[in-house]
């Protein structure tokens, strides 16, 4: 229907020199977040000598790993053209399930939340695909329901008495950079391969770009959508499990706000909310940038935690304005 209406901004054929400019703009949009991350880290290092210490950098990466796992899934969903608002509550529920499962073995504590997240993803996906309901509403209801379930199961918190191996997985220090950071990097690497080198990834891009066209090309849209929400749910569950291992307890309030932060991180990293565009490297930079802001505000001891919201919001706004400017450069 809208395909028959010509775009109001009809691009005149650009002269030869602007082709290079187009390429630079495209590169900035995809990789700009990495540049900003490096620049911000250098600036923070110049302002606070303690910032660039290896220990501090490791702390930032470790703290960001939980949001990072969630952001991977969110990234897939946003590239697909949807949202998953249930991930934050799923992290909280994941910590609680891990705390329940921990006494029965490490494998169970890792698997139970992940499988639960997978099932939540199936329900989300089915409601969106079969019942044709808006992703926003479905996952919003998921946010409320999973939070309620988590509080119901655990009250405020549930302590894991003897974390043992489960605790060492999160707090250990293999290869000198911390297991959590290692897991985060592995997951991002795997996700980048999945997104860019597999049929599934190509289908996700295709659906986000134009669902009807993807369907006509033979992409099994329903299946890919459900699988993507499963991926998002499972990663949120895994993130919850690792968070429980890190804290040695299940907290029903854990992960609150992750749904919005993960969308923010993805958008800062160059994932377009309109779907069909995004990179894993950008998303990782977005996550680390949010972590960096938090860390810098903590370094400025006089600022209360309240300023963190202000700074994150302002930063997100700035990133989105720049993104929007770059997008218009590309199309105009």
């Amino acid at each position: 229907m809208s395909a028959t209406v010509p775009s109001p901004v009809v691009a005149a054929a650009p002269p030869g020199t602007s082709e290079r400019r187009q390429r630079i703009v495209a590169l900035l949009q995809a990789r700009g977040a990495i540049l900003v991350l490096v620049a911000a880290a250098l600036a923070a290092g110049a302002a606070f000598p303690s910032f660039l210490h290896l220990g501090n950098l490791r702390d930032i990466a470790t703290a960001a790993s939980f949001l990072g796992l969630v952001t991977i899934g969110q990234c897939f969903v946003v590239i697909l053209g949807g949202f998953d608002l249930s991930v934050g509550s799923m992290v909280g529920l994941g910590t609680v399930l891990a705390a329940y499962a921990a006494p029965y073995g490490t494998l169970g504590a890792l698997l139970a939340p992940t499988v639960a997240g997978l099932l939540v993803g199936v329900v989300n996906g089915l409601l969106i695909v079969r019942a044709r309901m808006a992703p926003f509403i479905v996952t919003l209801a998921g946010l409320l329901a999973l939070k309620g379930l988590a509080v119901l199961l655990a009250g405020e918190s549930l302590v894991i008495e003897q974390p043992g191996l489960f605790g060492r997985i999160a707090n250990g220090n293999a290869l000198g950079i911390g297991n959590l950071v290692l897991i985060l990097l592995l997951c991002f690497g795997g996700a980048a391969l999945l997104l860019n080198r597999t049929r599934f990834g190509a289908a996700v891009f295709a659906i986000g770009g134009n669902e009807e066209a993807a369907r006509m090309l033979g992409v099994r849209v329903e299946r890919v959508k459900i699988l993507t929400y499963c991926l998002s749910g499972a990663l949120a569950g895994l993130s919850g499990s690792l968070l429980a291992a890190h804290l040695s307890s299940g907290l029903s309030a854990a992960g609150t706000g992750y749904e919005l932060q993960s969308i923010a991180a993805a958008v800062i990293g160059g994932v377009l909310l309109t779907g069909g565009v995004g990179t894993m490297g950008g998303a990782l930079s977005g996550v680390l940038l949010l972590g960096l802001i938090e860390n810098v505000i903590n370094q400025i001891g006089s600022l209360s935690a309240a300023y963190q919201g202000l700074a994150s919001g302002a930063f997100l706004l700035l990133a989105v304005i720049i993104q929007s400017g770059l997008s218009q450069q590309r199309t105009a």
Binding site: G309, S312, G313, V320
Partner: peptide, 11 residues
């Protein structure tokens, strides 16, 4: 969604 999200966090 994004502009009001940024405002949600910042406000």
């Amino acid at each position: 969604l994004i502009s009001s999200l940024a405002l949600l966090v910042a406000a």
